[in-house]
Design a protein around this nucleic acid. Sequence first.
DNA 1: CCACTGTAGTAGAAATGTCAACTACAGGCG
DNA 2: CGCCTGTAGTTGACATTTCTACTACAGTGG
Lengths: 165, 165
Amino acid sequence: MTQTATPTRAPVNAADVRWLTPAQQTHWRAYRDGTALLMDVLARELDEDTALSLAEYEVLVRLSEAPGRTLRMSELAGELAHSRSRLTHTIRRMEEAGLVQRNPCALDARGVNCTMTDLGLQRIVEAAPSHVNAVRTHLIDVLTDDQLRALGTAMGIVAHALRES
Amino acid sequence: MTQTATPTRAPVNAADVRWLTPAQQTHWRAYRDGTALLMDVLARELDEDTALSLAEYEVLVRLSEAPGRTLRMSELAGELAHSRSRLTHTIRRMEEAGLVQRNPCALDARGVNCTMTDLGLQRIVEAAPSHVNAVRTHLIDVLTDDQLRALGTAMGIVAHALRES
DNA sequence: CCACTGTAGTAGAAATGTCAACTACAGGCG
DNA sequence: CGCCTGTAGTTGACATTTCTACTACAGTGG
């Protein structure tokens, strides 16, 4: 099912809405508020400790795991769930900072390969301990194994459903 | 325990890091990716359907639930987990659009009360069905009750831990 | 009363993200 | 081939968020 020209969903009249139950409200808000607080503290601590933004850090993580420390721009955008435009801007800044390098893609003349430089590798090796520690402190260590597993499972389902459409 | 002047955490040497187990990695990434995708689609659909940003929508929700449809700026910022500066800018734009109004606070001359206008109320009444529907479609309806409860519980714990510090 | 420290809110500049074109190439099909 | 549609990536204008510094008032303790 592809999008129609105007991707507007059918307007929902107030009478038809299935409002959230109080319990659903509570859980949705806990998720929303917890996520806002968590992402905020992770971004702040990463920036203070390493002068990297969360977006830059995640770019480097994905590249560090890719064969040849290289990924196509679109693959990177897909994995990060960032818009192509956003990624272009981020990568341009990172390239100016010497963390990555861009090269035309041999197989597909439209494509651009993005490669992590040695400096980029160095930066993420330095940054990883601090960030892992922050994730541990604020997320992993405050939850039981079961709670973390449930969290991952639930959001995995959500992510999968969204990637379908 | 108060913060020291330089709130920098002790640097973490690579040797001391407790890296995440593969399972922890997986769950953390599922959470992170799912959240990015979910927030993105919710923001996009809300904007398309109602021309409100998620931030504006949430301001209106909090105000609509407050006595007198009024909250202090700092209370609003605290509930939304937004910085005071960010809130000031958001509210200024919303005030220009006629959705809220600011008045000095009688009890505390430093304070500012933020009140939702009738137009603001009207806008959120119109917007709510669409947004609830989107939350349902992309989050609530793809999870079982147990999964949603587990998600809310886990993130509630995370939020609580962060609000302590 | 006065100094001191902390809280509330704001403002402008800089950084970052979004949106809407736009170029260029790929792949299918007459 | 030549046309058409779709994908990859970029760009610049615009909107939002962050950072930092600032003003003003509250509350505490001498």
